[in-house]
């Protein structure tokens, strides 16, 4: 059994009197593509900052590839690459200089490292901006540089804190291709995003953080199965007037000849609903059902949403 990429035990964080993380336990295996989701203020960035050594935990421990992030910080930081959520940059330097300096902090130099940096510039479509001062780059381009900076030392574990916020569609696609490649090459990836389709498409396992606690931690498939609701859309020959009383609390939307209903799995039966509609005088023309997506599971778990 290889050493886990990330081990977190009983991690707590207070900012003054504000309790931000309430004892997080989490393990991410080597080679996973892991999603860390949660609403604004849930504590995702705080957790990441503790792993990166940017913030000190109030209690508990964290290890990256077996290296404690406080007592063995030199090793833990060498194995970790973090793309921070905020776009920050050093206005004194060009993109190429920034990457060379960053590699230098990690004790790296020489032609082999330089080739890797050139590869990063190409993969992130920064080649024609390589000698431009950071100040002169657009916001999305600065974010690409942040991603390149996090990867200069080919870290075993890569954590991306909302890497696609403010990034255009084209780059987003090429970015995911690149991150997938890193994952295939054996890197462990942890991703934070508010675009749940991204998480659904990429991540194998997902943790949902809510007010500093882990509200759910499971494989993507298991999480999707957890959804208690699915959507039933019924098209009728007659225009939808008043929805029968018995169905009112399930209605999501009524448009023309269509009614969209939210069904509680295992409680509501589709034949029963169709029968209710038929009795009310509607002729059913068509129907579709749709399983919940990650977004719905997310909302159910974080807001306790019903129907």
């Amino acid at each position: 059994m290889p050493v886990p990429a990330i081990e977190i035990e009983g991690l707590q964080k207070h900012f003054g009197s504000v309790h931000v993380l309430h004892g997080i336990d989490l393990e991410v295996a080597s080679g996973e593509f892991f999603g860390l989701l949660g609403p604004n203020g849930a504590g995702k960035s705080t957790l990441i900052n503790i792993l990166a050594g940017l913030t000190r935990a109030s209690a508990g421990h964290a290890r990256i590839c077996g290296h404690d992030v406080v007592s063995d910080y030199r090793h833990s930081r060498k194995t970790l690459g973090v793309v921070p959520q905020e776009v920050v940059f050093d206005p004194f330097f060009s993109v190429r200089e920034i990457l060379r300096i960053q590699a230098g902090y990690f004790g790296l130099k020489g032609p082999e490292n330089e080739r890797w940096r050139e590869e990063l510039l190409a993969a992130l479509m920064l080649e024609d901006k390589a000698d431009v001062n950071m100040r002169a780059l657009s916001g999305g381009m600065k974010r690409r540089v942040l991603i390149a900076q996090a990867l200069v030392h080919r870290p075993q574990v890569v954590i991306l804190d909302e890497p696609t916020a403010g990034v255009d569609v084209e780059l987003r696609a090429s970015l995911w291709t690149f991150i997938r490649r890193l994952h295939t090459e054996g890197h462990t990836i942890v991703l934070t995003t508010h675009y749940l389709e991204e998480a659904e498409a990429l991540c194998g396992r997902i943790a949902i953080l809510k007010q500093g606690r882990i509200a759910a931690l499971d494989s993507k498939q298991a999480l999707l199965r957890r959804a208690v609701h699915k959507t039933l859309t019924v098209t009728t020959a007659e225009p939808m007037g008043t929805v029968p009383e018995a169905l009112r609390d399930k209605v999501r939307r009524v448009t023309g000849h269509c009614v969209e209903l939210s069904l509680h799995k295992g409680v509501d039966s589709i034949p029963g609903i169709l029968e209710t509609l038929r009795v009310a005088g509607y002729t059913i023309v068509d129907l579709t059902t749709e399983e919940a997506d990650l977004e719905e599971v997310f909302l159910e778990l974080t807001q306790g949403r019903t129907g």
Binding site: L54, R74, D90, Q102, Y105
Partner: peptide, 17 residues
């Protein structure tokens, strides 16, 4: 300057002693 601009994190993220 680098604290306020935020770019001090690039040093803080590194294994520099």
């Amino acid at each position: 300057q680098s604290k306020i601009a935020g770019n001090l994190i690039f040093i803080l993220l590194s294994p520099l002693s």
